[in-house]
């Protein structure tokens, strides 16, 4: 099973019935000229990239956006429409009211599979005490957290909040909490590799493509900035395929992953098994017991 762990459905037609909201999403994400995507088109894209499942991210930075960009309910709607193609991660803003109740509702009622946090846009450091209750709730529900890390192209996003070293205390304090530093925390990829090496509860994904083609950039990051042996030998169980689509296109990223020179078994882990482990799902689709 090939899973894209990091997809943003902001421009899926089924949740863009309001033109004002669509325009807001273009402006907030700083993604333009891309149009809306029908679920049929999404399915065609997945087929071209040989992707079986995608994990869709909600987006709640309401303390600064003044509105929820993609709600947990919209993610649930897409999951229901997606004929088992989609899983979903909830989003809550730690600076808003009732975030804990919203998260509990997303886990218990909407049955979402994890939580996504955007520290660069929600303006908090991951090791701050004020988010401890969020981590504890995720542990209670056995849900992983996707931290959107590294360079964030969105307006007013601040990179200082997502330096990988901020996650070390979290990994130590909450060893049963599975967390993902997205995009290998680019440009701090060696710092991220250091954390993955020491802490088995930290994962990362491949959702980064800020220079060159996917083939060239993946080769630079995953075979040179991080020697290919580091992932292929030591980190192979903690790296997942993620695209950050629609910022980046999946088809060429998926192909680039297969051409890095890793062992076939490593590529298979990155494509699917590691995401299943992160999500706490066995290969048969059952929720695993941790």
């Amino acid at each position: 099973m090939f899973i894209d762990i990091n997809v943003h459905p902001d421009f899926y037609a089924d949740i863009n019935l309001d033109k004002t909201k669509e325009t807001l999403r273009h402006n907030r994400l700083n993604i333009h000229h891309n149009g809306l995507a029908s679920l049929n088109h999404i399915s065609n894209q997945m087929n071209c990239a040989s992707i079986d499942r995608m994990v869709l991210m909600a987006n709640d930075c309401s303390s600064t956006d003044k509105t929820v960009l993609v709600s947990n309910e919209e993610i649930k709607k897409l999951i229901d429409l997606g004929e088992k193609k989609f899983l979903g991660f909830a989003s809550v803003d730690p600076n808003s009211d009732n975030y804990l109740q919203q998260l509990e509702f997303a886990f218990s009622n909407l049955k979402l599979s994890g939580l996504v946090l955007y520290p660069a846009r929600q303006y908090f450091f991951p090791n701050e005490e004020k988010v401890a209750d969020i981590y504890q709730l995720c542990i209670a529900y056995n849900k992983p957290i996707m931290f959107q890390c590294g360079l964030n192209w969105e307006p007013n996003a601040l990179s200082k909040y997502v330096h990988p070293l901020h996650f070390e205390e979290v990994a130590i304090k909450y060893p049963t909490l599975k967390l993902c530093i997205s995009g290998f925390g680019w440009p701090w990829v060696r710092e991220t590799a250091m954390l993955l090496l020491k802490y088995p509860n930290i994962y990362s994904d491949t959702s980064v493509l800020y220079f060159d083609s996917a083939r060239e950039f993946y080769s630079q990051i995953f075979t040179k900035d991080i020697p290919y042996t580091w992932i292929d030998r030591s980190l192979r169980h903690q790296v997942m395929f993620g695209s950050n689509n629609p910022r980046f296109e999946q088809i060429r990223m998926a192909k680039a992953l297969s051409n890095l020179g890793y062992r076939d078994s490593t590529v298979e882990l990155i494509k699917g098994q590691n995401a299943l482990d992160f999500l706490g799902i066995s290969n048969t689709g059952e929720k695993s017991v941790c």
Partner: peptide, 11 residues
């Protein structure tokens, strides 16, 4: 390369 007016990478 990254295209600023698209906010995405040209592939």
């Amino acid at each position: 390369r990254m295209l600023r007016n698209y906010g995405s990478t040209a592939g």
